[in-house]
């Protein structure tokens, strides 16, 4: 990273919404994992990608983040193809937090240096995820919940326009889950679009503004959260909520 990137970032923080997937298909080893998907995601609110294990929600997220490239079709950000400026405005929290073998503070400064920002923000960020007292501790010695909080803090440190979260709370206890959810809700109210993957419908109910329901690599429904839980338009969504699709 260099100064040029920073300048580009500051001057060209263009709008990246809506994000649309056009006829997107993903094949890996001759297996079609994402089938001919068309959908559009808007600027506002917290979108939850929901589906059973193996339904393709993580792949969908990685496609949206640009970590994997679709086999056919394309994804557009405000009618543009993925480029460096767009990438700069996104960040992601993985299911199992990937932390650098460094201190907690250095994990944050690692991403801050990237944009040549000063390090005084580290304390603010650690404060936000309640890790300031651990600033000098080795990140790998944290508990699972603390690690995920750090990963979240690091993802937020670059002030993304778009934050991806891939089942960030699946290994966490209820109180930490609540803590993470509260932060995410707050973030999504402050002009950051959040796309959240989960298979936990209760969690989806708690946090979602709109829900994209995925099954076997296909988008079955994309509706408002209240509509999804009250109307249950599709048969598959109904059976998922009734706990039948788990078999």
């Amino acid at each position: 990273m260099n100064r040029n990137d920073e300048n580009k970032f500051l001057t060209a923080s263009q709008d990246i919404f809506p994000i649309s997937m056009v006829n997107v298909t993903l094949n890996i080893d001759n297996k079609q994992l994402i089938c001919n998907t068309n959908m559009s995601i808007n600027n506002d609110g917290l979108t939850v990608l929901m589906g059973s294990n193996g339904s393709g929600k993580t792949l969908m997220l990685k496609l949206l983040h640009g970590l994997i490239i679709p086999s056919t079709g394309y994804i557009l950000w405000n009618n543009q193809k993925l480029n460096h400026q767009i990438k700069l405005q996104q960040s992601m929290v993985f299911q199992t937090p990937v932390l650098l073998k460094r201190s907690v503070g250095d994990n944050i400064s690692f991403v801050l240096n990237r944009k040549m920002r000063s390090n005084y923000q580290i304390d603010d960020i650690l404060e936000k995820v309640h890790l300031l007292e651990f600033k000098n501790r080795a990140a790998r010695l944290l508990s699972a919940g603390e690690k995920q909080r750090l990963a979240l803090g690091r993802a937020l440190a670059i002030k993304p326009k778009l934050l991806f979260l891939d089942e960030p709370t699946s290994n966490l206890d209820p109180s930490t889950t609540k803590f993470v959810e509260d932060i995410i809700k707050e973030v999504s109210k402050n002009k950051t679009k959040v796309i959240f993957v989960t298979h936990d419908m209760h969690q989806a109910k708690r946090i979602a503004d709109d829900i994209i329901f995925i099954d076997k690599g296909m988008v079955i429904e994309h509706t408002d959260s209240s509509d999804f839980f009250n109307l249950k338009n599709s048969v598959k969504a109904k059976s998922y909520l009734a706990g039948k699709i788990f078999l």
Partner: peptide, 25 residues
């Protein structure tokens, strides 16, 4: 293998990735 997705996600250049990997190892 552990860091690759994170680095791609964070847009870490290959040169910085080398320094980061060597330091972390």
């Amino acid at each position: 293998e552990e860091y690759e997705e994170l680095f791609t996600s964070l847009l870490i250049t290959k040169a910085s990735a080398i320094f980061a990997l060597l330091w972390d190892a």
